[in-house]
Design a protein around this nucleic acid. Sequence first.
DNA 1: GTAGGGTTAG
Length: 554
Amino acid sequence: MLPQFSKLLFELSKIHQTLPRTKKLHAFIIRNHLSDDPFYATRILRFYAINSDLCSARNLFDETSHRSVYLWNSVIRAYAGEYQFDDALLLFAKMLRTEIKPDSFTFACVVRACAENFDPDRLRVVHGGVVVSGLGFDSVCSSALVTAYSKLCMVDEASRVFYGMAEPDLVLWNAMAAGYGYCGFWDKGLQLFSAMRSMGEHPDSYTMVGLISGLADPGLLGIGKGIHGFCLKSSFDCNAHVGSALVSMYSRCHCLNSAYGVFTVLSQPDLVTWSALITGLSKSGDYEKALLFFRKMNMEGKRVDPILIASVLAASGQSAILGPGSEIHGYVLRHGLESEVMVSSALIDMYSKCGFVNLGVRVFESMPNRNTVSYNSMILGLGIHGLASQAFEMFEEVLEKGFKPDESTFSALLCACCHAGLVKDGREIFSRMTEEFHIQARTEHYVHMVKLLGMAGELQEAYDLILSLQQPADSGIWGALLSCCNFHGNSELAEIVAQHLFENKPEKSAYRVMLSNIYAGDERWDDVKKLRNDIQEAGIKKMPGLSWIGVGHI
DNA sequence: GTAGGGTTAG
């Protein structure tokens, strides 16, 4: 008995056990009447959680009558880790009704679950619970709160938590700096970075990743290079996370040479780093190179995952060339990745965008599991091929099967209406979206509505729709209307729309080109000339669309 | 004999 017992303790002290091994250990514990000891129960529950066996984890929890904080935390964490936030929060509520009080780690876990579940209201309530429990100044809770608020773009709340702490530790500094970056305030993140250094806190790789990830605009390339320089000086550039963050930052800044430079310096680029480079290449339109690196990665025997496959398929779809996409389809089949919903949805999207919607349908029909995302891909695919009635049938199926339509579902349906010119259906689905499904219309929905109404000649209705927006309309929405005015030759409204556009986005020369097309149609050559000068002053050498304007007239 | 959880990259 005794040697076996010490062996048990040794096994339990490991951080990982396979599922069969876990079951054996569990059986051993039951046989020896140890299962009601929360220590043993907690260890086994964690092993079940690591192996994603929530069912066994929950049974074990239910059968254990003596529940410690450790056991409660572990079971809540198990659910949150599998994105089953409702169950995690239900268990938390249940815990509050017992005499076991949640500790800082319970709250940290629940706070994170609220953010990942996009539930700001609940987050505020749990934050209240943190304060009431006397953990308002606890560093573990605070850093979890700062991150959670930042992820929900509630940067004011996040900074209130941060500045409420007299002596923030490194994790908290990092969380706040990253939070600013995440919410688009990269400059505040940098300010915080210098503040922490002046207080004698040494940044680590987390700090750098947070700062780098906040840089999302080509105009910030100089700042990015500066931070890169700091990383080199402090030898953070060898860290895999920092390296990947740099690669993707340079990609976002359209500086693929530098991205590649960082990549080559890394001695052991991992899956994420390869993905950062490949995704960066495909997003910048260099599909050939993206696929080249994908093949290269495979030749080096590197593991590939669904996220990367989806990204490469998106590149193939954008290029609208079927070859590479179907090559990857073969890869997917060979590696048994077709059961991944993300992969199949990307395949449907790729086939549709390459013009082979029937192949997309075939992938869709062969999927063992579907979700809202896969339906969205299929609805969009049918929509862009003008098969609006089939797209709406799919939508009915979504509702029948009990899936919850989201913003993208309606975006795809509106797109279908656009391609088929279904004004009445478009109006109807647009109002159903807000009234029946309580989804707030986003820029993309307005763009589709404006295009739909505008192309049907309902220019005034489209214009009124834009004016009815609570917030100033995005330039993409005005641009859509300007195109429609252009199409219908309505120069009167076009000038009004152009005014709105030029106030908000004076640098966008494409809109000036559109307007100049209209002027050219009216043979107002002086106005055309003026706009052309504007465009040239903005430093744009060549603009597609200008070419058809008879140069001889100017 | 008695646990470890808060901030990173695509």
